[in-house]
Design a protein around this nucleic acid. Structure first.
Lengths: 332, 332
DNA sequence: GTGAAAGCGCTAACAC
DNA sequence: GTGTTAGCGCTTTCAC
């Protein structure tokens, strides 16, 4: 049997309420008895049972984190931001992978609520009405990270994907490229749709056909290679390509190089995210900086505010993005 | 207020014991009353409170996972293996980053035990006596993943790092390289020490000086670039280099290329791990295959066996490794 | 096949 | 400043 608060109370000759007080740092305890209790705790090797505490206090100091895939370089960075801030505020994290599968997502939300998490950070592709319904029954706060809820009902932290894609496309266009292609991600996520819209808006603003040079990948390196091949099969080949994720952009670069196409001389390549990969390729990748770690950190911070019932000015946080030019695009 | 088992019992006109039985799939319930209960659960939207259940049953169906850094491509892959198997066996995971800091590690172990995890998967650099002491007081099983306990007391899943490093070095040596360098990781971890020993043994076996071409990095890409520079400052320059991690190996490759040194013609480069990075570079990286996902998965599986008090034949699992030759080494 | 009741280890009034 | 006590929402004997 493990040692309980009652054992400590007996050992220290006080009541369990007093032990509870010193364990929880309640100031209303005489220093002398505080010491007695601490000594008893030390002697017995007492370790408070967080489950019992959770049942009695209705707070578990743990938050649920639903993530598409922790082995993705992108989400892992987000997760690190979330976990760091959680630790800072004394929360632990229950982490589960959803693979962006809606049924799994709904199931995970319920499993975590069953475990009485104090809050939830959710990352996913598309927030449906079913998600919203689950969130509403939750009775604990939720924050979305790098995930947009079009209804705007759920607190979230993002960048402006549409504008970021616009900026990237416009930069490519400003390099005298007439034909700028876009390698899209899976088409069923809101983030991707927004990127696509930003690309199209930039193309239209400069009087170009926005629909001619679009191919679709799945964010993977290999799909970048395939995307490059599709681009080269076009009769009217693009001279620049904006790729919706860095890893996929590396695939495009290597696909080009493997086929004797020089980057950036023959083809300019632009990425998205600024993962660590962007500097781990030659030429180094020009890309949109999305602050993954910060998005995770801010989302968790936002969640702590809700959990503490603090005032929150704006529940839809948009973090700034920026462009970083490296060597996969022409120097101006 | 949330709906409790008691509410369901009243709604269904049965006792809470019966509700508990149907919720837990106990067969000793008449189908008719089972249905009554299910209906009531549905009607009320009852969701069992796992915290209360945990307190009563002394099992939380959650396991703790202590990981150096979830944003590392290597550990993220391990974590995914752990989580997948955990899910398969109906466990959730509490995940925390330790940054390989001993105090944090010890603190996390205690925090997780306080949360009454049913078991613990630990990843770290060095298992000290202090760690072992914590593990012993745990009263729940522990499994190490990609982490070696030299005392052999703690169940673990690894590959044979010494032999893997030997194999890689020997392969380089077989390519008529007289001077094979080694880029070590931080020197205070057991895994790194074993790699170093494997390298030295292979060098000695072929009659070469095992101490002349060793430089130290920190597994990062940038430290790979630095390592290359150190190598080039040597008066007796190596013609091949075995790098103890893929990401660092990419740094070496790019360091070489940035300085006009051709890989593999002028310098052969060999990595370790076979992370996804190995194919995301030109030339593609020859490397030692360490099955990260499997190590995580097997460690978690091992832990489930201990948690179920199943028989375990061998508590120190060594998974096979292999060599994969790509284009950063000479074809034979 | 079902119910009653005693905990699980703690927190949080409330009393003194 | 400290003790008493009633829960928190379940599981688990033990009866019947």
């Amino acid at each position: 049997m493990n040692v309980t608060i009652y054992d400590v109370a007996r050992e220290a000759n006080v009541s369990m309420a007093t032990v509870s007080r010193v364990v929880n740092g309640n100031p209303n305890v005489k220093p002398a008895t505080r010491k007695k209790v601490h000594d008893a705790i030390e002697r017995l090797g007492y370790r408070p049972n967080a489950v019992a505490r959770g049942l009695a206090s209705k707070k578990t100091t743990t938050v649920g984190v639903i993530i598409p895939d922790i082995s993705s370089i992108f989400f892992a960075e987000l997760a690190r931001g979330i976990e760091d801030i959680a630790t800072m505020y004394n929360y632990n994290i229950i982490l589960s992978n959803s693979d962006q599968n809606k049924d799994k997502e709904i199931h995970l939300i319920n499993a975590m609520l069953g475990k009485q998490v104090d809050g939830l950070v959710f990352m996913g592709g598309k927030i449906t009405d079913d998600h919203i319904r689950e969130f509403k029954t939750a009775s604990v706060p939720i924050a979305l990270a790098a995930t947009v809820d079009e209804s705007g009902e759920t607190p979230s932290v993002n960048i402006n994907y549409e504008q970021a894609a616009y900026d990237a496309t416009e930069l490519l266009l400003s390099h005298n490229n007439e034909k700028v292609a876009f390698v899209s991600g899976p088409e069923d996520t809101v983030v991707n749709t927004q990127k696509l819209e930003g690309y199209k808006r930039a193309m239209k603003d400069q009087g170009h056909n926005p629909d001619q040079w679009i191919v679709t990948g799945d964010y993977s390196y290999d799909s970048g290679i395939e995307a490059f091949e599709q681009l080269m099969e076009m009769e009217d080949k693009p001279s620049a390509v904006f790729v919706s994720a860095d890893e996929m952009a590396l695939g495009v670069i290597h696909g080009a190089q493997d086929n004797g196409v020089r980057v950036p001389e023959d083809l300019e390549v632009f990425g998205f995210d600024n993962t660590r990969l962007a500097t781990m390729v030659r030429p180094t990748l020009s890309t949109v900086v999305q602050p993954m770690y910060d998005i995770g950190a801010v989302a968790m911070r936002l969640l702590t505010k809700f959990m503490n019932k603090e005032e929150v000015e704006d529940q839809s946080v948009i973090l700034p993005h920026r462009i970083i030019e490296r060597n996969s695009t022409q120097q101006k």
